[in-house]
Design a protein around this nucleic acid. Structure first.
Lengths: 351, 351
DNA sequence: CTGAAAGCGCTTACAG
DNA sequence: CTGAAAGCGCTTACAG
């Protein structure tokens, strides 16, 4: 019953071998197969046997060796993050979310940045998974939207969850970020402020989120009797530079908009820069709304009103779904986009 | 000699078992121990034997299973990144550098964000390493400066490399970032522009880099007959907010400096914000230099002159040292800090 | 509900 | 320079 080391154990202090399944079996007076059943939460163990084994496990601080388990199981206790989003904050938040969900699970996180346009994209991805026989992977936008990648996972029998703004797969393979709702929030905010001449700066058409953010935005404008004029829609590339360029084009129009909703914060930062160069005041002359709520949003001047995306929370959900350990006790609202109002939006100037 | 599947192999296409060391041994007509020697680059194999085995390995596309190797070897083929730098760009760049160095090595990267001030910091770190029996870890600032962490690595026999701005350990455990040289570059630039009333905005004293950046800066000023007045030294916290606050204090002085060197880009961004609030023009009234060259430096207005730190390159070096596979063929300058001149610096106004 | 046997794919001693 | 044996710490069939 004591946890203090016996003389024998104490002999080679420090280098004490860590306990194995055999130690547990011997001390609990069962076979190692039964210990294995307890480790793997098999229902075919009598309650008192299970309790006895669990007590020994706790006393020795036993944790099964993931390498040995993995070798026998044919699959490593590793989960991969596959990403191509160039924004570091997105990547780090996503990693933190995955780690949140994997805590005390015995799994570890390995990362795989990739490039969909590379000729070796699929081969690299396959090698990444097969090399260590990953248990499963989480795919994030835009690589999550790539059907070739999803098909590869299915072909090689690797578990996967895709994080995306729309439903692209069966529920067990999907976490939706509901970007459409974020677009709606932006529209509601600008409409409430009294704007009517409203522009949209889109991301590239190859990203599903570009479409989702726009259609949510347009939909909610329409519901309020407003509309998005063709001339007020510009297509950017989710980059700062494209934000500057498109922002300038919109702000140089003879009948310029009084509000611009940019598809992400990077482009919104570009619009602020364009406004500064043109001598257009924000928010007095034009209101600007972004999407993401990355750190830059609160570093800009004026600080940026934007739609916050709960990336970390989404990451946790994705990995929980992958491991089949979903926790339904949390507030479902925490996984939805939400508006953060700062200084870059105000009612339109009186004419 | 053909790589096309024989009828027998082709039977269960797609699910074809991947080749093992036994397959290689059988086809090469040697024992699996000898194949193992080739895999592990043992010198005790006759050249013709080695070549024969390597040919078979290449033909079958064999790669040894890291789990099985790890189990027998007592150590996983995984390398951990332990970090507590809150800047996402630093983290992502460091990860990319580690992955650069690990390419084709058979190792995979696992990540461990941590918090030195947590009461469970050391226990968490130990669990992270022992759970999967990591091969080794790379520690980055500021956790790399923590002697408790280094001692833990030594105690549990885990290989490690510390990335830090100064020499804290033996060469096999260190990659130095030479921040002092970066400070010197900033000083040389401001001196050449003709500044004499020069201020320094320091990071927190608990970070070695704060001291290194300052002393390099001061040293190079002194060499040019300039000095850093006590009144012109402020202590920040490497955060944007501290940059705003200290920037304001410096810019509100009766005899305000004509140039400010901030210890990192975050604080430099804060100084620009303070200048804007006070109506002080940059660079006309005051020049500002940062440190890091993160993305924000080129998004600010004016764009920021700063010292670029080659984080990705440093990461590659660190992991190569850890694996004992250093490549000395690269330009040694690529690992040193270097000045990037942009819009935020100019000669001081004529009086 | 429990266990003895065989095996996962490698490496470490130990021989020769 | 090469190999047969034993073992790393688990799990998967297969019995009972």
């Amino acid at each position: 019953m004591s946890k203090s080391p016996t003389p024998e154990e104490g002999a080679s202090e420090g280098l004490r071998r860590r306990p194995t399944i055999n130690d547990i079996a011997r001390l609990a007076g069962v076979s190692k197969k039964t210990v294995s059943r307890v480790i793997n939460a098999s229902p075919f163990v009598r309650d008192d046997t299970r309790e006895r084994i669990q007590a020994v496990i706790a006393e020795l601080g036993f944790a099964p060796d993931p390498q040995a388990r993995g070798l026998a199981y044919g699959r490593a206790f590793l989960i991969g993050l596959v990403y191509d989003n160039p924004n570091p904050q997105y990547v780090v938040n996503m990693q933190l979310g995955l780690l949140d969900g994997m805590r005390n699970s015995g799994f570890e996180l390995v990362v795989h940045p990739c490039d969909r346009s590379s000729p070796t994209f699929l081969d690299d991805l396959r090698a990444f998974i097969e090399r260590q026989r990953l248990y499963g992977v989480v795919l994030t936008p835009s690589v999550s939207e790539d059907e070739r990648a999803a098909k590869l996972m299915a072909d090689i029998g690797c578990a996967y969850v895709r994080v995306a703004s729309v439903t692209l797969d069966t529920p067990d393979h999907m976490i939706e970020t509901r970007d459409r709702l974020g677009g709606r929030e932006a529209a509601a905010h600008l409409a409430e402020l009294g704007h009517t001449k409203i522009a949209f700066l889109s991301g590239p058409p190859t990203f599903r989120s570009s479409h989702e953010r726009r259609s949510g935005f347009e939909e909610a404008l329409n519901e309020r009797g407003l509309s998005l004029a063709k001339a007020y829609v510009a297509e950017g590339a989710y980059t700062y530079e494209s934000g500057v360029e498109c922002g300038r084009a919109l702000l140089e129009m003879a009948d310029r908009p009084t509000a611009i909703f940019a598809g992400n914060d990077e482009m919104a930062a570009g619009v602020l820069q364009a406004a500064r160069q043109l001598g257009v005041r924000v928010p007095e002359d034009v209101s600007v709304v972004g999407f993401d709520d990355f750190q830059i949003a609160s570093r800009l001047w004026p600080t940026l009103t934007t739609v916050r995306t709960p990336t970390r929370e989404i990451g946790r959900l994705a990995v929980e779904r992958l491991m089949g350990r979903e926790d339904d006790s949390r507030d479902p609202k925490s996984r939805l986009p939400s508006l953060v109002v700062r200084e870059s939006t105000a009612p339109p100037a009186k004419r």
